[in-house]
Design a protein around this nucleic acid. Structure first.
Lengths: 105, 105
DNA sequence: GAATCGCATAAGTATCGGCTTATGTATTGC
DNA sequence: GCAATACATAAGCCGATACTTATGCGATTC
């Protein structure tokens, strides 16, 4: 199965943290940089990787670049997990909790 | 959040394929090696990584070591995805399909 | 229009990670 | 007990990658 690098993109802790931050709210690169302890180029590079994986989207506004998490990018992960559903013991009912939550929404 | 290296363990395509194979059925290291194009040590190393991440379990029998996928090891992934549930657009109803499947079982 | 700002890209470096071959350690078979 | 088998570990190699500083480039500001 060809996952579009979703796992690899999220494997790096810093990059995952960037995604998590962008899931909370849209932010510009400089705002994002201020929240991490790596340089601005490092952040830009992580964003490029996340964007290539479909995990974030970019919105240009003048000289600013606003990024936000693209939840659809997580779909390959859900798909992948889905493939092993039938092998899962009922013990893993956390997935059911997730569904319950969705139903309640 | 401190994921127990689940993402990193599944980021490598070969290692992910090993996990997928072990999800289908328990196998010994040599049986597993026969199915891949990397050496036996490489397989052993992948298995060690997967085991450290809680994604496989080992069963010793004489000089054989049988491995099988540990679906519980995927729980951290589900947990992590769950954290962003509220940000997801309804468009991602695939997760609902998963839950439906579980309910039907 | 010159300086500044926001960001991306280039280039270099050092570490990590997956692979190999070589070797070690039990276990089994003769 | 000796050879062979099953697997793990050691050691080394090399490409990938996460970071840095330096630079480029468009947009804003004065």
């Amino acid at each position: 199965m060809m996952l579009p690098d979703t796992f690899r993109a999220l494997a790096d802790p810093t990059r995952r943290a960037v995604f998590e931050r962008l899931a909370a709210s849209e932010m510009s690169v400089s705002q994002l940089t201020a929240r991490f302890e790596v340089s601005q180029p490092a952040i830009s590079q992580h964003l490029a990787t996340l964007k290539a994986a479909g995990l974030v989207t970019e919105r240009r506004e003048g000289r600013f670049a606003y990024y936000r998490a693209a939840p659809e990018g997580l779909a390959p992960l859900v798909d992948w997990i889905d493939r092993y559903r039938s092998f899962w013991p009922e013990r893993i009912d956390r997935l059911k909790d997730i569904l319950k939550g969705l139903d309640d929404d």
